[in-house]
């Protein structure tokens, strides 16, 4: 099975095709509904001059340049020494970020987005242009995926609540499947088209 470590090169991304199984390694950052809305409103469509925001942006840029965002709202445990551990960390449904993701990919030069359920045309186009790919994790496999999370390096925007915060994590051999690649292919489009055909036959 293919192993990739963040930051990921354009060349490695171009070599990926839908259906490829990949084990991801290195630093990734979680971000879901509140985080995407925040990134768009404070950094991408507007430029916040709040010193806290400016400092956060400087931290995020190197983490996300060539990096990967994970659509995930984990169950997290605070250890006695004040550090954090991931207890359960499967993917959340990605399509809710469709309105934001293309801009986030371009702004930060993301190489990958991990989630579940796939995304639509704007993100697929951004994957082609950047290039980047959509990695599908197994929805609900939360305890198993948490075993891949070896370290919680940092957390930003904890005021969004545990599920919505941006967790900076180091992963080892996080199992994913490429379901949208940088060549314009999407397993989700294909399955949708085929299932629509069968549906027409079934309901006449």
């Amino acid at each position: 099975m293919l192993r990739l470590t963040t930051p990921i090169s354009d060349e490695d991304i171009r070599s990926l095709h839908v259906g490829d199984s990949v084990l991801l390694n290195g630093i990734i950052v979680t971000g879901r509904d509140a985080a995407h809305k925040f990134l768009i409103e404070h950094f991408i469509r507007n430029q916040s001059d709040d010193p806290e925001d400016v400092a956060l942006l400087e931290k995020l840029k190197p983490l996300l340049n060539g990096g990967v965002i994970y659509h995930c709202g984990p169950v997290v445990k605070k250890n006695e020494d004040g550090s954090w551990s991931f207890v359960a960390a499967g993917p959340t449904t990605s399509i809710r970020e469709e309105v934001y993701e293309a801009e986030v990919i371009k702004f930060f030069n993301l190489k990958g987005v991990i989630g579940k359920g796939g995304m639509a045309g704007k993100t697929l186009q951004a994957c082609h242009d950047q290039p980047a790919v959509y990695f599908h994790a197994i929805g609900g496999a939360a305890t198993l995926i948490a075993q891949s999370v070896k370290e919680v390096v940092d957390v930003y925007k904890l005021e969004f609540g545990v599920p919505e915060a941006m967790w900076v994590i180091r992963v080892e051999d996080f199992p994913v499947v490429v379901t949208m690649d940088s060549h314009g292919q999407s397993i989700h489009d294909k399955v949708l088209a085929e299932s629509e055909e069968r549906f027409k036959q079934l309901v006449g």
Binding site: G73, V75, A88, A89, I138, A141, T143, L144, A146, P175
Partner: peptide
């Protein structure tokens, strides 16, 4: 993967899925 996860969650007594 799902079945493996189910078994692991039962053994470790941790959530099957993070969205409880």
């Amino acid at each position: 993967t799902i079945l493996q996860n189910v078994e692991m969650a039962r053994e470790k007594s941790t959530p099957i899925c993070q969205d409880t």
